[in-house]
């Protein structure tokens, strides 16, 4: 009897221990290390995930988190974000964001610029928000435009259309060009992985716009990798965003934007793409003009 109880106890401990090992080995493998931009093309592998059929739109939905900014990646200690300055109030204010210019993730150059922008907001100034003044979002800034996005998928190219009138182009299964130049959205190349992920690698962005609504600056060295991963029943899409820029950041920034299918409030129908023209009716009647960045406009014809 005594020996039987001892044996039962030992067996139970072994079983529990084995179960714990099995649970850990069922955890997802860590994401592959970020590929550096270079001349080698990344080729897609596995089935092509369906981001686009049925004209599906995707809307930002971070489940109580920030729908117009980076979010931490749950359970991932490689998350690196520059968020709201801890000494200032209105931490959850969507509009009047004050970036943490004391973050060790910022180079001295970037910290100085962010401090200027942050102190202007704290003094009552109006922050610059690209989509509010009809400026491009860039990458990753377009994720923080409060509007659904739509994918168009063909074999050679993927387009992201924003319901804010913006278009991103991703060239599939090819390398970056030798001289992509510099532009608002840079040059994006992409490939599919694991049957559920679109990886997008972007270089060649000029340094005109901020990376997010905290107005964090960047340089032309910026290199962004986005991993769009969709679940099997197309009800959720997580985008892990990594931003490298040795001119602005001491380490790569890394965060999450989560999307769910776009629907009108209270309805189950998909939200359709609509024509949206930001520049119309852009006069401002309540804020002095010298506090606002002008909307883009032309004075001379190109033709």
């Amino acid at each position: 009897m005594k020996n039987g109880i001892l044996i039962a106890g030992a067996v139970a401990i072994v079983v529990v221990g084995a179960a714990l090992v099995l649970r850990n080995s069922g955890a997802e493998a860590p994401a592959p290390e970020q590929q550096a931009a270079g001349p080698v093309a990344h080729m897609s592998s596995g089935p092509v995930p369906d981001f686009s059929s049925d004209k599906l739109g995707w809307r930002q939905n971070n489940r109580g988190g920030d729908n117009t900014g980076f979010n931490p990646i749950p359970g991932d200690d490689s998350t690196r974000l520059i968020l709201h300055h801890p000494d200032f109030p209105y931490a959850q204010n969507v509009v009047n964001r004050v970036g943490d210019f004391t973050s060790p993730l910022l180079t001295p150059w970037a910290a100085k610029i962010l401090e200027e922008r942050a102190r202007k907001v704290m003094a009552g100034g109006i922050p610059f928000i690209p989509n509010s003044r009809c400026w491009p979002g860039g990458v990753p800034g377009l994720h923080f435009f409060p509007a659904p996005i739509y994918f168009l998928q063909t074999e050679k190219e993927v387009w992201l259309l924003s319901n804010r009138g913006e278009v991103r182009r991703i060239f599939m299964d090819q390398a970056h060009s030798a001289d992509p130049g510099y532009s608002w959205y840079g040059e994006s190349v992409g490939w599919y992985e694991n049957g559920n992920t679109l990886v997008v690698d972007t270089i060649g962005q000029d340094d005109k716009g901020p990376i997010d609504r905290y107005n964090i600056p960047h340089t032309k060295q910026i290199h962004v990798v986005e991993r769009f991963t969709m679940n099997a029943d197309r009800t959720e899409m997580n985008v892990i965003i990594t931003v490298e820029d040795p001119g602005a950041f001491t380490q790569p920034l890394k965060g999450l934007m989560r999307y769910t299918p776009a629907t009108e409030r209270g309805a189950t129908e998909k939200t359709e793409w609509e024509e949206y023209v930001c520049n119309e009716n852009s006069e401002e009647f309540f804020i002095p003009a010298d506090q606002l960045v002008p909307v883009p406009s032309a004075t001379k014809r190109d033709f």
């Binding site: 069922g26 997802e28 596995g46 089935p47 092509v48 995930p49 369906d50 981001f51 686009s52 059929s53 998928q153 063909t154 074999e155 694991n194 049957g195 559920n196 969709m230 679940n231 099997a232 029943d233 197309r234």
Partner: peptide, 14 residues
């Protein structure tokens, strides 16, 4: 349960 890696119906290009 963790989501399976491969969707049930792979995308078909138009």
């Amino acid at each position: 349960a963790p989501a399976p890696a491969t969707p049930a119906a792979p995308f078909q290009f138009f």
